[in-house]
C-alpha cells in the first residue's frame, strides 16, 4: 500500500543531503592523525558550510587605531579583555570570548572587527593564536 512514508522516503533518496561531512567524509579515529594527513596533502578537506554574511567569528584587533579608552572592558560580559598598562592597549583572550560583539559596538575608533574564522577548538587556551597580544 503506497503510504506517505514510502513516498517521502523515495523522494529523500534523490534530494541533496543536509549534513555536510566536515572536515572529512568519515569521522577519523584519531583527530591528530587526520590533521597531519590533511597537512601533508594526502587527504583533501571537505569545505565547511558557507557562513552567513554578518557571522561573528574570531575577533580582529587594530592596535594602531586603539586609543586605550577602556570602554570595551566595561561591556565585555566574559572578561575576555585585559588592559596592558605599559602599552595602553587591550589584550584579547579568544577562548573566553562569547562573540556578543558589544566591544565592537562601543569602540569609538572601531578597532574591533569580526572575521570569518571559526575553527578555534584546541587543547591549550593560552596558545599563541588564542591570545591576541599587541
Amino acid at each position: 500500500m503506497p503510504t506517505t512514508t514510502i513516498y517521502t522516503l523515495i523522494k529523500q533518496l534523490f534530494t541533496k543531503k543536509a549534513t555536510n561531512p566536515f572536515p572529512v567524509k568519515y569521522a577519523p579515529s584519531n583527530m591528530h592523525g587526520a590533521a597531519a594527513l590533511i597537512g601533508s596533502g594526502k587527504v583533501r578537506i571537505n569545505p565547511p558550510v558557507n557562513i552567513p554574511k554578518n557571522f561573528r567569528g574570531k575577533m580582529s584587533y587594530d592596535k594602531d587605531s586603539c586609543i586605550g579608552c577602556k570602554l570595551c572592558l566595561k561591556v565585555c560580559p566574559s572578561e575576555a579583555l585585559a588592559f596592558k598598562d605599559d602599552v595602553k592597549k587591550v589584550k584579547h583572550y579568544v577562548s573566553r570570548c562569547t562573540f556578543c560583539g558589544q566591544c565592537a559596538d562601543i569602540c569609538p575608533k572601531d578597532c574591533f572587527a569580526f572575521t570569518d574564522e571559526f575553527l578555534m577548538a584546541g587543547t591549550d587556551k593560552y596558545a599563541e593564536e588564542m591570545v591576541i597580544d599587541p
Binding site: 557571522f55 561573528r56 562573540f99 558589544q102
Partner: peptide, 15 residues
C-alpha cells in the same frame, strides 16, 4: 535567524 543575526543560537540582537 542565522541569516538575520549571524549566529544560529545566542543571537546578541538586543541592546
Amino acid at each position: 535567524l542565522e541569516y538575520i543575526t549571524g549566529n544560529r543560537v545566542n543571537y546578541a540582537m538586543w541592546t
